[in-house]
């Protein structure tokens, strides 16, 4: 299910802890990382490849601000539990849907149990896609665009020592 922290030595941990905050955007980024961590470029690349193949790193690359790199919106629908998966299949097949989670925990009268992210190259296309999907599904789509983001530090400190005890 998940990896154990003991499989990752201090170099692995350093790579994750330091570089989840950002790699140097320079001609030889992995050489620059290697110099800082006191190892070779080849070793850094090999470590990143291993961490990626174990899916401990989902990727090494740019993190886009989607509000500026296109249009996207969090959306939800309330559908009967017994037909939920059929609705989910329709949603997943719609162009622009890139996340879709079944979620529980709302009061019955609210009932939104499928939560997805709709994306499009621009706002008019986003609206058009949502309108088309709404007509296709036959249920209203709750549209929740981001109005303001409050998060500043996007990294997430990993408590390695604590994890080792679990």
């Amino acid at each position: 299910m998940h990896c154990h922290p003991r499989d990752f030595d201090s170099l692995d941990r350093g790579l994750i802890d330091i570089y989840q905050r950002g790699l140097p955007v320079c001609t030889r980024p992995f050489l620059s990382v290697a110099e800082r961590l006191g190892t070779s470029e080849t070793e850094v690349i090999a470590r990143l490849e291993r961490l990626h193949s174990l899916d401990v790193l989902s990727r090494v690359g740019p993190v886009f601000d989607h509000a500026r790199a296109g249009a996207s919106l969090l959306a939800a629908v309330a559908v009967p539990e017994e037909t939920r998966d059929a609705f989910a299949a329709l949603i997943n097949a719609a162009p622009g849907v890139n996340h879709n989670y079944a979620r529980e925990g709302l009061a019955r009268e609210q009932g939104y149990n499928l939560w997805f992210v709709m994306t499009a190259p621009d706002e008019p296309e986003l609206e058009a896609r949502l309108d088309a999907l709404e007509a296709h599904l036959g249920v209203p789509i709750l549209r929740l665009p981001m109005l303001e983001g409050y998060h500043i530090d996007l990294s997430f400190p990993i408590p390695w020592a604590e994890l080792e005890c679990t």
């Binding site: 690359g61 601000d65 500026r68």
Partner: peptide, 15 residues
Amino acid sequence: VIRRVAAVPNHYRLG
């Protein structure tokens, strides 16, 4: 447009 270029951890895999 790009927030950062980074090693993006999959926290799920770490527990």
